[in-house]
Amino acid sequence: MVPANRRGFHFDNCKRNELLESKGSITAKFTKTGTTIVGLIYKDGVILGADTRATEGPIVADKNCEKLHRLTENMYCAGAGTAADTEYTTNMIASKLELHRLNTNRQPRVVTAASMLSQHLFQYQGHIGANLILGGYDINGPQLISVMPHGSTDKLPYMTLGSGMLAAMAVFETKWKPNMERDDAIALVTEAVSAGIFNDLGSGSNVDVVVITKDRTDYLRNHSKPNQRVPKQTSYKYPPGSVSVIRKEVRYHSNANQSPAAVVPEVVMSES
């Protein structure tokens, strides 16, 4: 049995999976974010935006997922690529940054996070499929840094990433200018993400926005919801008796939420 407390990645299944692959079976798909993520710098800070669709091949796996990950109070990270990788990478860096903050008693800097992310991803040589846009505000002002799966970084005033990056970049290239006002900048980010939502198949549903300024961070979850589902016009409830039951067992729960619990199931034969 594998000890529960063994740390880091485990490779025990690799040999077996290699064997399975050699027998001609294809390994399964991971959940991808598909994704349009964007970020820009405006007059008072930095804004990140993301759509909320997660895909597994051609299937929409999650219609309202969260792609804006909190690193610290003054830093957020938008993630595209393999969903589990963006989630676990940003979570791990968030924990490291919090420890760093407690150890140094200083507000963590954006470059610190960028270095940590880039070193982690470089260590794994691109196998961790995380494409990230890191945005934050520290003593050096607003900063926007992208980190790619192999560990390379870019520092730009506005950027887009993910399968919808071209659609979103078209909007930024047309309308972005330096020192924009807050409301205009939020509207531009929303427009860029919407361009991805409507023109890229890998992106969809709603727009999440986070605005980071010198002294406050506003996370606007589902800031724009352009794809609300209309209420169903018909109910497809099945009438009682429409499911034929072979056997039914009832297990009564012991006193709520106590850990030891096992009531002998009562067996009933019925035809519902």
Binding site: V243, V245, I246, R247, K248, V250, R251, H253
Partner: peptide
């Protein structure tokens, strides 16, 4: 080849074996 469905409510869990 048949199905099993568990209906979980605060008081009890009913398990149905379906045709």
């Amino acid at each position: 080849w048949g199905a099993v469905v568990h209906v979980i409510t605060p008081e009890k869990t009913e398990t149905y074996h379906l045709q």
